[in-house]
Design a protein around this nucleic acid. Structure first.
Lengths: 140, 140
DNA sequence: ATGCAATATTAGACATGATCCAAATGCGCG
DNA sequence: CGCGCATTTGGATCATGTCTAATATTGCAT
């Protein structure tokens, strides 16, 4: 299914973003960019070490921070308990299932902001995060 | 400055929302509803106990959870480290200063969603949270 | 008023996610 | 080949937030 070229793609992507390659970073990149799911640090750690433990917790956190700085990832803050990392850095928004904690993307075009509010002086927009919190219809 | 009627207002508000009154709950309500700021649990604890410690950490958390259930407060999840509690439960959105961590309200009318995306079957919208992350213009 | 059951409060132990640190490892490059 | 800097690591540490079992308070019926 996934040939060796997957890894090469990830390696390219890291390098293009100025990240020097290491075995661990490639593993983490593979977990994130293969499925494009929204994962927490814990989940990433678990997946990387699914077979035998090879990457430490500290490295996962270091690497995620690095990837964030280099613009390879976005943080998604919707759960008070943990941060999700979003491998999709294109502008888009999120559907958040409150009951299951599952996150789904909403294409940026699916929502239009009619107008933006006035910003305080000297401030610029870093990003607009829209989260639509959903739950099953039935019992509250 | 603030007469004793403030406290009575808060008491009324709690009771109208089905919250039985206690000394501690009134203190917490006073802190939240007097300034209408966005505060974290820690900040609320600190303010309530500004003079002498009277309310425990556990009670602050219990009370905040209760106020949430009763619709007296909203949670604002923008900071990975802590939850902010918003005494303004009317529909509105937020400006979040990434550098200082300061939260400001945006009136709901200041933003219009042109259209909402299709929701999965049987799911309903619980709320729409829009956060505009801002930072000073100058150096990144 | 008085007693009693239900509700609220509390201190401190605990759980969890995330960070820090100092030591060890590995890598690039002369 | 080896030096130096970047990276990784285990474990300690931290901060929020939750839990528990004991105590205090409250409302209510009598």
């Amino acid at each position: 299914m996934d040939g060796p070229s997957d890894h090469d793609d990830f390696a390219d992507r890291l390098q293009r973003h100025g990240v020097t390659l290491t075995h661990q970073r490639l593993e983490i990149a593979a977990v994130l960019f293969r499925t494009m799911e929204h994962l927490s640090a814990d989940q990433i750690l678990a997946r990387v070490n699914a077979r035998n433990a090879q990457v430490s917790k500290a490295t996962v956190y270091n690497t995620l921070k690095l990837f964030l700085e280099k613009g390879l990832l976005r943080e998604v803050i919707v759960d008070p308990d943990r941060v999700f990392y979003d491998p999709n850095v294109a502008p888009h928004h999120h559907l958040y299932d409150v009951t299951t904690g599952h996150l789904t993307d909403i294409p940026a075009e699916a929502i239009t902001l009619a107008r933006l509010p006035q910003l305080p002086d000297g401030m610029v927009v870093e990003g607009v995060d829209i989260v639509i919190r959903t739950r099953p219809l039935n019992p509250p």
